[in-house]
Computed example of a mutant assay.
Amino acid sequence: MQGAYLLSSFVVLALASSFVSASDPDPVQDFCVALNDSETGGLFVNGKFCKDPKDVSADDFFTYGFDVVGNISKKLGSAVTAFNVEKIRGLNTLGISLARIDFAPYGLNPPHTHPRATEILAVLEGTLEVGFVTSNQPDGSNKLFTKILNKGDVFVFPVGLIHFQFNRGDCNALAFAALSSQNPGVITIADAVFGSDPRINPDVLTKAFQVDKNIIDYLQKQFWEDNNY
């Protein structure tokens, strides 16, 4: 009986440890260079099918363009250039990716979340106002952590939390970000809420935001621009 209890306890602990692991699984081989779905004919799974190691080359771990300024002429005044597993197939199973974020004067990387990654941001040029908001606290509040960053400063955004970056200056700004997932994902809050396809029922949003329905109708008719490339 005691042995059965110990075994069941071990199983529970093993399952619990699996739930608190990182969002990307640890690799069990040197690398797993991703194949495109079209190259396998298989079903899409969480991750990618691996290329035969005999066919892997240095180019599978390489890309270019990190020095290229993104298109910051659009309405938001920012451009996020992601370097994830879709651009570097050798990142598959390695649990990391990069992004270059360019800002026009007073450009904004709007409130968004990365559902699968913590982000660490380093400012290379300019001055950014950054921040993130906690999940719902026991007292019903959502605390904002915000900071002004200058060249050489670094800030961390915890996984899944809403965060933003805003260029406070009248000159262009540049930041690099590292993320703890090969494919972090991004949910831009305003786009998702007001620009979904099909649209969320306006009655739902009117009650959720406690505003006049005309305001919701106006917001849903806007063109929500994506700054991710």
Rank of each mutant, 00 (worst) to 15 (best):
M1R: 03
G3D: 14
S8M: 09
F10Y: 09
V11T: 14
V11L: 15
V11M: 14
V11A: 15
S17N: 02
S17D: 01
S17P: 00
S17E: 04
S18T: 10
V20R: 05
S21Y: 02
P25K: 04
D26S: 08
V28L: 09
V28C: 04
Q29F: 09
Q29S: 15
V33D: 02
A34R: 05
D37Q: 13
S38A: 10
S38W: 04
T40G: 01
G42T: 03
L43W: 07
L43I: 12
F44L: 06
C50L: 12
C50A: 13
K51G: 08
K54H: 06
D59K: 11
F61C: 03
Y64Q: 14
V68W: 01
V69M: 12
I72H: 05
S73F: 00
K74P: 02
S78N: 12
T81W: 03
A82H: 07
V85C: 13
I88G: 01
G90W: 00
G90N: 03
N92L: 05
N92E: 14
T93C: 00
L94F: 02
G95L: 09
G95D: 07
S97Y: 03
A99P: 06
F103V: 06
F103C: 05
F103P: 04
A104I: 07
G107N: 10
L108R: 00
P111K: 04
T113P: 10
H114L: 13
E119M: 13
I120M: 03
A122K: 10
V123H: 05
L124D: 04
L124K: 05
G126I: 08
G126E: 05
T127I: 14
T127L: 11
L128T: 02
L128F: 01
G131S: 09
T134F: 11
P138L: 12
D139C: 00
D139A: 00
K143R: 13
L144I: 04
F145L: 14
T146I: 01
I148T: 15
K151A: 10
D153K: 02
F155T: 13
V156P: 12
P158M: 10
V159G: 15
I162P: 09
H163Y: 08
F164R: 00
F164V: 01
Q165I: 11
F166N: 06
G169V: 10
D170T: 13
D170Q: 15
N172P: 14
A173D: 00
L174V: 10
A175E: 07
A175Q: 06
F176C: 07
L179M: 15
G185M: 08
V186F: 10
V186C: 12
I187R: 12
I187H: 08
T188H: 02
I189W: 06
I189G: 05
A190Q: 06
A190V: 07
D191H: 09
F194G: 07
F194Y: 15
G195D: 08
S196L: 11
N201Y: 02
N201R: 03
P202V: 00
V204T: 15
V204Q: 10
V204N: 14
V204R: 08
A208I: 02
F209K: 07
Q210M: 07
V211I: 09
D212A: 09
I216L: 06
D217T: 07
K221Q: 15
Q222A: 12
F223V: 09
W224E: 03
E225R: 09
E225Y: 12
E225M: 08
D226L: 14
D226W: 14
D226T: 13
D226R: 14
N227I: 05
N228Y: 15
Y229K: 13
